[in-house]
Design a protein around this nucleic acid. Structure first.
Length: 317
DNA sequence: CTGATTTGACCCGT
DNA sequence: ACGGGTCAAATCAG
């Protein structure tokens, strides 16, 4: 299923790291081409480890590119993503202010609705509430951007397991990221209708999979969805994809909630999908392509980090 | 100790 | 009154 970039509006901040990011993204595209060749040259089963490893490296590259873009955007703000409680005094008044700002107690109109098998999206979210919803089997989880306090980012999202398919999460986004967590890549891609520019932020496996009838795959660099399956939660912190290295996302840290402890068995890729690939048998040339250590530490990505692109639906409101 | 999550309470619209 | 969204003290975890 195609993953289509949506909703990312933008305030693309021209960044000094933009060129490096572009280079990284270009590298990612090169690897995509290699992957294509690999797929075409060897009739590998879809779940072959090398294929996944390559895809993972592509993802890694994109992540780094996004990180670079972010670094160029606002270097000062991301250093303090910690909790900053507001003074208890005046809570009531602030609530009133919130109500007024939002046009009432109701949430603003959603900007985007997505369905995915993981609620991970590459952004750094902080859970602020959970509510049982009437006539719904699953609670709704409330998240806001972790940079709300620092950057005044108003992005929020609601995550709820689908009624029809519990392995799916319905994620409703409200507002746009105006913080350092926002990916300039998405903004640039959205703002600029230059095709070549756009292509820099799209990994297109279409030609590689055309023979098998799969549609072109678009990688939403603004919302990087990735499997967050069995990775042990070494940290409870949510993360932006560019910073992350395969840890659980912020919506999956709860020890009690199926949604957060995730992915639920049905939500996780099958073993075949998240094939273990500690030492993918890549060809030397291929490895050369994949030697991106110049861009920083590049411990090989865990299979758990693989995006399962087939598991994502995006809907633009 | 720091920072994220939990969860009951509060607020607002219907 | 009820449902949904948010707040914030308490709690948990690294």
């Amino acid at each position: 299923m195609a993953l289509i970039a949506t909703g990312a509006t933008a305030t693309a901040a021209a960044s000094p790291a933009a060129s490096m990011a572009s280079e990284l993204m270009a590298q990612g595209r090169e690897s995509a081409a290699v992957l294509e060749a690999l797929l075409q040259g060897t009739s590998l089963p879809p779940a072959h480890g090398a294929v996944h490893a390559l895809a993972a490296e592509i993802l890694r590259c994109c992540d780094r590119a996004l990180a670079a873009m972010r670094a160029g955007g606002e270097a000062e703000s991301s250093s303090s993503a910690g909790m900053k409680r507001k003074p208890a005094a005046g809570a009531a008044t602030s609530r009133k202010r919130r109500a007024i700002a939002n046009g009432g107690g109701a949430a603003p109109a959603p900007t985007r609705v997505e369905k995915a098998r993981t609620s991970e999206d590459g952004f750094l979210w902080r859970k602020y509430g959970q509510k049982e919803i009437k006539n719904s089997k699953h609670p709704r989880l409330y998240y806001r951007c972790s940079y709300k306090e620092d950057d005044g980012c108003t992005a929020t999202r609601h995550v709820q397991q689908s009624e029809d398919d519990p392995s799916l999460y319905v994620i409703t986004y409200f507002g746009d990221h105006t913080c350092s967590c926002q990916t300039a890549a998405a903004s640039a891609a959205m703002d600029d209708d230059d095709d070549e520019n756009l292509q820099r932020f799209v990994i297109n496996f279409g030609s590689a999979t055309a023979s098998s009838g799969s549609p072109p795959l678009l990688y939403d660099d603004g919302d990087v969805w990735r499997e967050a399956a069995a990775t042990p939660p070494s940290s409870r912190q949510s993360r932006c994809s560019p910073e992350g290295d395969g840890q659980e996302s912020g919506v999956k840290m709860s020890k009690e909630e199926p949604v957060d402890s995730c992915p639920a068995p049905s939500a996780v890729s099958s073993p075949a999908d998240a094939v273990s690939c500690a030492s993918p048998a890549l060809e030397p040339d291929l490895l050369g392509f994949l030697n991106w250590d110049d861009f920083g530490d590049s411990s090989f990505i865990d299979a758990d980090e693989f995006i399962n692109f087939d598991e994502i639906d995006l809907f633009q409101i």
